[in-house]
Design a protein around this nucleic acid. Structure first.
Lengths: 232, 232
DNA sequence: GTCTATAGTCGGATAGAC
DNA sequence: GTCTATCCGACTATAGAC
């Protein structure tokens, strides 16, 4: 005998949860591509396979769903960068990290960030949403910035400070870490122009390997630049 | 005796032109900040000091104004990069540029691009619009890409090919030029996050000088990387 | 929790006076 | 060319049955 959506507490919760999640997933994709106003509640519900009134039901409003999507991004980023953050948290003074370990860590982080942003599709939506918010920051930008971006900036800055010997709180270090992170994001953000220039519709494995190589080269230029001052 | 908007042919044309231009200017700022749907015709007309029906009158529709804004961007970019393009156009084979001149040219271009994008405000709107279009390319993206971006990519690629000795049509060169251009744009695109990290509300002259230095360092890492192969 | 129907709002485009 | 008034369509949110 088939069980058809009985109102046992268990089934209720599961159905509710999956609708909720489907809407967030839809929001992730659509808000990133079309922007907040460019995405209609109808588009969201169609994509999620949910009813129009499920948005006010679960999130109060379209705006509520948008904020929930931002919180979801923070959660997901946490998953990806959680280990690094935990590792870094224990370090209070930059001189407690050996330089060679810092270099290795930076390279690892770049590779993993690049893998995440260049290869997979979900983070592409994250980046697009974040960039839209930077054009005109709203409450949603605070969620992302305070929730994750801030810590990624800190981790990179700390590592670069160790590698270069520059003071960890200096603007120089902050600008360098920005350049390094941005370098990765631009391959996601400006993918369309790059694909047209390459005359392809999708990156090949060779492209991606080459991108990694270029990113690492750049990282080295950031890292070794101030080296001479270290030897004094 | 004051002349008050008489319908002499001259005054008519001038008034029309200035309304047209004011709308494009408004579109430039607002579409970049809020996106196409996020910008209403009422916002545009308020900003431009024009009447609502002036949009259908001059541009047929809101979409028409949007496309006109894109064409305007192409024109303006032309102004900025025109000389370099003309200079480059005459060069068909990469070996006709001496390497040291190519290096100098790249550095000059980076500085002038950075000056344009980091310091002034109008190009900020260009970049934002272009990035929005890359999230979901429409007819408008073609206007920009075919109108200007394509040539900037070509100029950079040619120069990098000369500097590195890599084949000018290789993907390697294209990826490197993308990284180089993107590096500049990210300081515009992700300005908000950087300002928060720096704990300031506006870049100082020192920040900007430092940004130039970092961009040039990176350019060097792109340029000198393949150098050994040149000496064979 | 999910559905349909609909209220209420807003935005783009038009008509027609000046 | 510019203005006011207005139409019409699209959108978000709600009401209330199931």
């Amino acid at each position: 005998m088939q069980i058809t959506n009985q109102n046992t507490p268990d089934n209720r919760d599961k159905r509710g949860d999956s609708t909720r999640l489907a809407l967030i997933q839809a929001g992730l994709e659509l808000f990133g591509e079309y922007g907040f106003k460019g995405t209609t509640t109808r588009m969201l519900c169609d994509r999620a396979g949910a009813n129009i009134s499920s948005i006010p039901y679960y999130f109060d409003s379209k705006q509520g769903l948008y904020l929930a999507v931002m919180e979801y991004i923070v959660e997901r980023m946490q998953k990806h960068f959680g280990e690094v953050r935990t590792m870094m948290k224990s370090i209070t003074r930059t001189d407690s990290i050996p330089r060679d370990k810092a270099i290795m860590t930076i390279k690892l982080m770049i590779r993993s960030l690049a893998q995440l942003f260049v290869e997979s599709d979900e983070p592409k939506a994250w980046v697009q949403l974040i960039m839209r918010e930077q054009a005109r920051p709203t409450q949603a930008f605070d969620i992302i910035y305070e929730g994750q971006m801030k810590y990624i900036q800190q981790v990179f800055s700390t590592l670069i400070a160790v590698c270069t010997g520059l003071p960890p709180e200096s603007d120089d270090v902050k600008l360098r870490s920005h350049a390094l992170i941005g370098q990765i994001l631009i391959f996601t953000l400006s993918r369309e122009a790059l694909l047209r220039h390459l005359n392809v519709r999708k990156f090949t494995t060779e492209h991606i390997e080459k991108i990694y190589a270029i990113l690492l080269e750049h990282a080295e230029s950031c890292i070794f630049t101030k080296q001479p001052e270290l030897s004094k």
